[in-house]
Design a protein around this nucleic acid. Structure first.
Length: 406
DNA sequence: TCTGGGGTCCTAGGACCC
DNA sequence: TCTGGGGTCCTAGGACCC
């Protein structure tokens, strides 16, 4: 069978590069890619972590997701810049649109990563390495940021390859190169081996990808159960995932928020949950979907997380019905501890709500449909005039009642 | 001035039914 | 007094990704 040809294209330090470009455009004299700099959250809002770092900052040992406090300890003259998500959205869009000209088989993997499948195109592109350089250089010239391109016979290896030396590079990791290029790497470098798995592997004396690759499958199964085969295959560079959007059964929409201060007042929590419920249910209606499961997510002052979810009798996209559930969950499951983060998640989404009708449900489907189209109109108005300028009176009443109960 | 936010997938355990 | 087993559905929590 013909070997596949897969590219993985990864924007180098995406958020930081994109902010660098914006700053230069605005007349800023320094290219923050060349100094110790990071894109960071807001410490006053208790979200002070590193979102992206420059290569210079990386040399100081600064890693993504560590606290700004600790990053500053590693580098005294570190510069911190805030993220600009609107701008990132634009850059990301440019990047993904640009890639589509090369093949219809592209997969947007994240804001700053894409897979391209060139299998069966050898009559169009005779030299894939040349093509990769062309893409890389043209992105740099057109958009002002650099990328890494990984070329391989499957997605896993393409992704591993683009992660080799950075920035502004093209790497290959074809099947026959796996032993030489991937096996010597530390186990942490293997895609899908995170902190927990790498710790367990190292405890078993498995320190490199090569050691994992050659380990007996029965031995691995003892410790990693069903994950064992996946791990061993990955270490051997075996992966037959197709370059196509993974049609997952369990789609979900969620919003979570770390509050500037811990909250312990149920009415304050309800106010935030109402805002969050409006947001997620509007997203749900935008997608023309209904949800079957509603969940509330908590993180307390001690950083312990917990969540509670309930299945609905019937799928819905109605803010009010969802908010009722959210409040019910809050009242039944909040442990009365100081809450640092709270959020709402809608899960088990479906596009068709006509599944089953509860015997004791007073709402008919027709009524629900009326509500649904009414809410969509409200969504449109909110879009024009800013969110929550119009909310159904019944919901305002609920909020009002909560406020009165204070 | 310590520790984000949005996702997917997997597993373990309990409830319930036959 | 002792106490099956298979299947399904549901929930909570954890691991991992960017």
């Amino acid at each position: 069978m013909e070997k596949r040809i897969i590219f993985h294209i990864d924007v180098n330090n995406a958020f930081l590069s994109w902010t660098a470009i914006l700053l230069l455009q605005e007349g800023y004299k320094i290219d923050i890619r060349n100094i110790p700099a990071v894109i960071g959250g807001d410490e006053k809002r208790r979200s002070g972590i590193v979102l992206a770092k420059s290569m210079v900052a990386k040399k100081y040992g600064i890693v993504t997701a560590e606290t700004l406090y600790s990053a500053r300890n590693k580098c005294k003259n570190l510069k911190v810049y805030p993220p600009n998500y609107y701008w990132y959205y634009e850059k990301s869009h440019e990047f993904h649109e640009y890639l589509k000209q090369f093949t219809p088989n592209t997969l947007k993997y994240s804001v700053d990563e894409a897979f391209l499948d060139f299998t069966g195109t050898k009559y169009i592109y005779s030299d894939y390495i040349k093509l990769a350089h062309h893409i890389k250089d043209e992105i740099k010239e057109k958009f002002g940021f650099t990328v890494n391109v990984g070329i391989a016979n499957n997605m896993l290896c393409a992704k591993m390859a683009s992660d080799f030396q950075k920035p502004d590079r093209v790497h290959t990791l074809f099947d026959e190169e796996v032993k030489k290029k991937m096996w010597p790497l530390p186990i942490e470098d293997l895609f899908m081996v995170g902190r927990s798995t790498s710790k367990r592997l190292r405890e078993l004396g498995i320190n490199t990808i090569g050691e994992l690759a050659q380990k007996d499958i029965n031995f691995l199964t003892k410790y990693f159960k069903n994950q064992a085969e996946f791990l061993k295959n990955s270490a051997n560079g075996i992966d037959d995932t197709k370059v196509e959007p993974h049609k997952s059964k369990s789609e979900s929409i969620s919003v979570t928020e770390t509050m500037p201060k811990d909250l312990q007042d149920i009415n304050e929590l309800k106010e935030i949950l109402f805002r969050q419920t409006s947001e997620v249910s509007r997203q749900l209606r935008d997608k023309n979907k209904f949800c079957n499961v509603v969940a509330v997510i908590f993180k307390n002052h001690q950083f312990e997380s917990y969540s509670r979810q309930t299945k609905l009798d019937n799928p819905t996209d109605n803010t009010e019905i969802i908010y009722d559930k959210v409040v019910e969950i809050l009242e039944n499951s909040w442990k009365n501890d100081p809450i640092r983060l709270i959020g709402v998640r809608l899960a088990d989404l479906c596009s068709d709500r006509k599944t089953q009708i509860s015997l004791f449900d007073n709402n008919t489907i027709e009524e629900d449909d009326k509500n649904s189209s009414f809410q969509k109109k409200i969504d449109e108005i909110n879009k024009k005039f800013g969110s929550n300028s119009v909310v159904p009176a019944s919901i305002i009443n609920k909020i009002g009642k909560n406020k009165l109960r204070k």
